[in-house]
Every structure is written in C-alpha cells, then in structure tokens.
Design a protein around this nucleic acid. Structure first.
Length: 471
RNA sequence: GCUCCCAUCGUCUAGUGGCCUAGGACACAGCCCUCUCAAGGCUGGUACGCGGGUUCGAGUCCCGCUGGGAGCGCCA
C-alpha cells in the first residue's frame, strides 16, 4: 500500500464544549494548510457526543470563527450526534466478533480500584475483571469495553515526533460505550476517521497518548491507520498553560480587537515552524511553503507583541478595500456609520502605517468623519496659543482661496505660510493639526486635510481661532 | 505515582558534526530620517539547562540528571 498516492484528506475535529481559541485554530490551520498544499480535502467535524457540555453557542462560534479566518472546509460540518446509528453498528460488530465485551463494574467500584492502585503507586487502570466473563449482573447497566491486546507494542510513526513506542501492557480496556449506550470519544474518532477516509490526523500532542488505543481499534476494524502529526501545544505568555488572560479567548475576540485573519494565521504558523528568516507570509505563501514535517517538537509561548507587530505588517500590505471593510466595521462598533467606500479607503491608506489594529485605526480616525467638541488638552495648550493665532488666520485665508484641494497643493500652501512667517514647518503644521484633528497626532497634515475636505478644514480653523481668543 | 513527550537570547526561531568568536524576528535602548505619530534605516545588550561520554572536533550524536508539559474519566 502506497500512502503517498492517496489523495490527502485532513480534518479538524473540535468539540463544542468551550471556546475556539488560538490553540485550536493553530491545529486547524496546520491541517488546512496541509490539505491545501497537497490539493487535498479538509473536513470539519464537530465532536459533540458529550451532550451535557456541548452547546449550540459554542458550535456557532466554531463555525463563525472558521469562516472569519477563511479556513473553509471542503466537507462538513459533520456532527457526531448525527452518526449514532453508525457507532452502535460498529459496537455490535465488535461485540459479535469478540473484540469488545460488557463490563458490569459500577462507577463506585472503579473509583475504588483507582484509589487502591494510586495508593500502591501504580498507574490507575481497569484490571480486566469482566474481560472473560460471560455472566451478567442484575441491576447494573453494563458499559462496553474494547479488548486491547495484552502484549506486544504499538508503534506510532509520528511525522513530528518520529517513532514513539507504547507497550500494550501499559494500556487497559477502554470504555467505548457508556451504560446508557452512547459511544465515547476515542471510539467515535476511530470510526469517523476511518469512515471519512482521513489520511492525515493533525492534532494537539495532548492526544499522543490516545493514539495507541486508537490504532488498536483501527486494527480491529482492519482499517489502515492514518498518518499522525501531533503538534506541540501553545503556552500562555508567561510560559504556563494557556489561560483566559492571554489567548484562551474566542478567536472572534481577535476580530473585535481589529486583527486581520491573515495576520493571526501568520502569527500562528510561525509558532513551531519557520521558513528561513521569513516572518511575514501571505496566505498563498503559507500554502506553498508550509510543511508539517518541519514543525517543532516543543511547545511555544504566545507572544501578543509579536502578533501586534505582524498585524501591522499585514495592515500595511492589505488592499485598501479590505481595510475599508474592516474599518467600517470598527467604526460601527463605535456607533459611527460610514458608508462612503472611497472615504474609508482614503483613511485606511493614510493610517495604514500607523495602526497596529483596525480598532486602533478607527479610534485614531474619528476626526476624519466626525466633528469634535474638545481638543486634547496638552496639545491645545502647547499649540493653540496666541503666538499661533496669526498663523491659523493666515492658513484659513490661504486654504479658503485654494481651489485645487489636493495634498500637493495643500502642502505648498503650508510651506508658503511657513515662509511668510519666517519659521519652520513644525510651527505651522502642529497648530494646524491640532486645530483640524483635535490632537497632536495624525497622518501627514497635507494628506489629512485632503481627506477632511475644504469646508470642514476651514470651519475647524475658525473654531480653533475662537478657542484661542476665548482663553 | 506510573507512561509518554519536550529542552538555543525575555519570547518566536535558524542551526541536521567543522561555514557558530551561534544568525534572523518581536520587545527593549541609542542614533538617523522627519510637520506630529508612525513606517523605514543603522547600532547595541542578552541564549546553546547541568554532568558525563563518542569524536581530531559537539548547540548539533549517545547516556544520566534537572526542569517543564501531557495522559492515566461511563470528558473530549
């Protein structure tokens, strides 16, 4: 059997019990990239067998998150809760073939067994009491356990970790169906990966220990195990487990905070993987260059500063229309509705080098689309002074008389006023900036005025002069 | 406790026995550019966890230790 000739099929199989956070997104990304790189298929499967903890809300967050990120599935989403008949069928098959058996131990008895083993400094595991019994116990609904091989080894040839060997003697007979008849995780994964023809399983390395059991079940089904790639985990910025404080929030939070999906993905792809000295990757470059075989074995810490830097890099590269779209969204989150696409694009182009997030861009761009009531106190105190008054007046007149309202022409006017007062550009541009923007920070003043427009500029210059006079 | 995994600057990483007096990036500091803020350019400091081997030679291979992580559920 030649694995390499099979079309690649990968999957992302989150359980909707919590938020889709960056750890999950990274395994999804690696899985997706691998499929895209090899022109294969990417399957989305929702593992919702735990009905108590699964919620529709979490499922929706996963779907929305994947959509926002652009990690589109070729098949699915499939839901395990809709495949119950299939799982039960395989369980019956196992029972019939003697590959599984009913175990009548109660939860209490199992807990007791675990406690005893722990006390004896042993690895807690099921002792196989019911493995060879054929009787039944009245009053106890049995669970069904898989008959794991008693000896020999299971070899996992992981593309990231290499050869990992597990002794069957270390494994016990895991429960594949609860006493209420519902199948459990490790079993469903096996049936699904097989049924869905998954060739490459990319998942967090917290699953490495589950792999030998899954391989044993696959063997019992006479199925060919997939290729496994257990990717290292992501740690919080403090090197400890990912927590809510850094990163363990819904991916949609990043959308709200003004991150570009390609920036977040670029950040995540560089965690545990690299391509020479390259830091910034477009989606196409990621697909072309990413190779699961080159992924690191060690866990990596989440670094919000670098994410921020990458976001800015992508903002600088992004198309004006994409930026405008995101900016419009950020404005509306602030209760400001702007529909003028060309205005949004102009603002985005003026701000793209000075915003780390779209949220920050919107925050610093309100003066473009709304008049302000007050000035930044420090900036006004320094720049809107009696000394600046004649300069503001001269600017008002000169700009009022300017017919060609474009950055280059505006620039000439400002230069002329500076020359007229025999002073540097700073003495003219800063008061003008504060008068028109309300604060001391903005894109280049000529470009800024070009966007704000003539009538608004002139009105704001007049208002600034009244402000100076009123002091 | 048992099993498995991991180990280069603060962080992400390059490095597959000599090209390593260890390279790049983020962050930090300084300088340049400059109408503000940025962007950009230049410069600087900081790392192979420890101990044994193997070898002419080890960040790179082997062993041990230490440290970190995961799993050991009628959770996924």
């Amino acid at each position: 059997m030649n694995e390499s000739t099979r079309p690649v099929r990968t999957r992302f199989a989150p359980s909707p019990t919590g938020m889709l956070h960056i750890g999950g997104v990274r395994t999804a990304l690696f899985s997706w990239l691998y499929a895209r790189h090899h022109q294969g298929s990417f399957v989305l499967r929702i593992e919702d067998t735990d009905r108590e903890r699964s919620t529709d809300e979490a499922t929706q967050v996963i779907l929305d998150g994947m959509k926002w990120l652009g990690l589109n599935e070729d098949e699915g989403p499939f839901y395990q809760t809709q495949r119950m008949d299939r799982y039960k069928e395989v369980i019956q098959q196992f029972l019939r073939e003697g590959k599984a058996y009913r175990c009548y131990c109660t939860k209490e008895e199992l807990e007791e067994m675990r406690a005893r083993q722990m006390a004896a400094k042993q690895k807690p595991r099921y002792d196989g009491t019911w493995r060879n019994r054929t009787d039944v116990r009245e009053g106890v609904e049995p669970v069904i356990r898989f008959k794991n091989p008693l000896d020999g080894v299971v070899v996992v040839n992981d593309v990231i970790h290499g050869k990992v060997v597990f002794e069957n003697a270390e494994l016990d007979d895991l429960i594949i169906a609860r006493s209420d008849g519902t199948p459990t995780y490790n079993f469903c994964v096996v049936v699904d990966d097989w049924d869905m023809g998954i060739t490459h399983v990319v998942r967090g390395d917290d699953h490495l220990n589950n792999t030998p059991r899954q391989i044993n079940m696959l063997m019992a089904l006479s199925a060919t195990p997939p290729v496994y790639a257990h990717v290292p985990m992501i740690l919080g910025a403090d090197g400890a487990k990912l927590s809510k404080r850094h990163g363990a929030v819904s991916v949609l939070q990043y959308q709200e905070e003004g991150y570009l999906p390609e920036a977040l993905l670029n950040y995540l792809v560089r965690l545990g993987w690299s391509h020479g000295d390259q830091e910034v990757f477009t989606m196409d470059e990621m697909i072309a260059l990413f190779d699961i075989n080159n992924v690191n074995k060690s866990a990596s810490a989440f670094n919000p500063e670098k994410l921020l830097w990458l976001n800015q890099q992508h903002i600088m590269k992004a198309s004006a229309s994409a930026l405008a779209h995101g900016l419009r969204d950020q404005f509306s989150r602030r209760g400001i509705d702007v529909d003028d696409q060309s205005l949004l694009e102009a603002i985005a182009n003026a701000q793209r080098e000075r915003a780390k997030t779209l949220k920050e861009m919107a925050q610093n761009s309100v003066f473009f689309v709304r008049d302000f009531d007050s000035y930044d106190e420090k900036a006004a105190k320094k720049n809107l002074t009696a000394e600046a008054q004649p300069i503001l007046a001269a600017l008002e007149t000169a700009l009022q008389n300017l017919d060609e309202w474009q950055a280059s022409a505006i620039h000439e006017v400002i230069n002329a006023v500076a020359a007229q007062f025999n002073t540097g550009l700073g003495k003219v541009a800063q008061p003008l900036r504060v008068a028109v923007c309300g604060g001391a920070v903005s894109p280049p003043i000529d470009a800024t005025l070009a966007i704000i427009g003539k009538s608004r500029t002139v009105a704001r210059l007049q208002k600034a002069q009244r402000h100076v006079a009123g002091q």
